[in-house]
C-alpha cells in the first residue's frame, strides 16, 4: 500500500529526513517511536502533503500512485488521513460542516453519491458513539477552545467518519487520560481491517498494549535505525534510546 524509498526532506534548507525506507501493507499496523526532534512529525507531514517541506531525494508510492505529486486534498480523497500532533483551531468553521464537506468530496472522488443531511447525521451519530464523542463538541467550531485531550479525540472522531485507507496518528495518545486512551484505542481497533493500514507515532509503549502493532520502528536523526516487533517497544521503555543509537553507530 505504502512504499517509502530513500526519502530525504528538508525545511528551510535544513535536512530533517535523511533517507527513510519503509513499506506498509494493507491490514498492517506499524508503530514509529523515536526521540524528540528526530523527524516523526516531519515524515507524517510530508506524507500528508503539508507545504513547506522540500523532498530532495527518494520516492513515495501509494497504491501505484506517486504520492508526492498529489495535492493534500487529493491525498485525502485517495484515503490518507493524518491525525495531527497539534490540531489547529479554526474559529467559525463548524465541525459537522467540515466533515460533511470532506466526506462528500471523498465520496465524489470515488464515484459515490453525495450524502444528504439525514444520512450524514446518522453516520455522525454512529461514529460519536464509537469514540464516545460529546455532541456539544461536535457542534462547535473545529477544535476551538477544546482541551488538549478533546482535540485528540476529535481527530479520531474525524478519522472514524472519513474511514481512511491509510491513517497516520501522530502522538494521538499524548495528552489523553487513561479512559480516553482506552476509548481512542478501541476506536482504532474497530477501524482495523484487511483493507486499511495504520501508522501510529507514539512515545509510550502503553498504547501498544491496546493496539497490537505488526512492527515497531525507531526513527532517529531522520532515519529508521531499528525495526522489531512489540517487544522492541517494551525494551525501549525500559532502556531508553541510547543503546539503539550506540548499536547503529557501531
Amino acid at each position: 500500500m505504502l512504499k517509502i524509498e530513500n526519502l530525504h526532506a528538508s525545511v528551510d534548507g535544513k535536512e530533517i529526513l535523511k533517507g527513510i525506507d519503509l513499506e506498509i501493507n494493507a491490514g498492517e499496523v506499524h508503530a514509529i517511536m523515536g526521540p524528540n526532534g528526530s523527524g516523526k512529525s516531519t515524515l507524517s507531514n510530508v506524507l500528508a502533503g503539508r507545504p513547506g517541506y522540500d523532498v530532495t531525494e527518494g520516492a513515495v508510492h501509494y497504491n501505484d500512485k506517486n504520492l508526492l505529486e498529489l495535492s493534500p486534498e487529493e491525498r485525502a480523497w485517495e484515503g490518507i488521513f493524518l491525525a495531527f500532533q497539534y490540531p489547529v483551531e479554526i474559529p467559525g468553521v463548524n465541525n459537522v460542516y467540515l466533515l460533511k464537506a470532506g466526506l462528500n468530496a471523498i465520496r465524489k472522488h470515488r464515484g459515490e453519491s453525495e450524502l444528504d443531511a439525514m444520512d450524514f447525521m446518522s453516520i455522525i451519530r454512529e461514529k460519536m458513539k464509537l469514540v464516545d464523542m460529546d455532541e456539544s463538541l461536535v457542534r462547535r467550531s473545529v477544535n476551538e477552545g477544546f482541551s488538549g485531550g478533546e482535540k485528540k479525540r476529535n481527530e479520531i472522531f474525524q478519522m472514524a467518519v472519513l474511514e481512511p485507507k491509510l491513517a497516520i496518528l501522530d502522538e494521538t495518545d499524548s495528552g489523553l487520560d487513561i479512559d480516553a486512551l482506552k476509548v481512542v484505542a478501541g476506536g482504532v481497533n474497530k477501524l482495523r481491517s484487511k483493507e486499511r493500514a495504520i501508522v501510529m507515532i507514539t512515545h509510550y509503549q502503553r498504547l501498544l498494549d491496546y493496539i497490537e502493532p505488526d512492527a515497531v520502528h525507531v526513527l532517529a536523526d531522520g532515519r529508521i535505525v531499528k525495526t522489531g516487533d512489540k517487544s522492541l517497544a517494551l525494551e525501549l521503555e525500559k532502556r531508553g534510546y541510547d543503546w539503539v543509537l550506540e548499536e547503529t553507530r557501531v
Binding site: 502533503g49 493534500p72 486534498e73 471523498i106
Partner: peptide
C-alpha cells in the same frame, strides 16, 4: 492562515473551497 488551510485540505476540501470557508468564517 496556512495551517488552517492545510488542515481543511487534509480533510478533503479542495483548496478553493478551503479558502472560501476560512474567508467566510473570518
Amino acid at each position: 492562515d496556512l495551517e488552517q488551510l492545510f488542515y481543511l485540505q487534509s480533510r478533503g476540501l479542495d483548496k478553493t473551497s478551503a479558502k472560501n470557508v476560512l474567508t467566510f468564517a473570518f
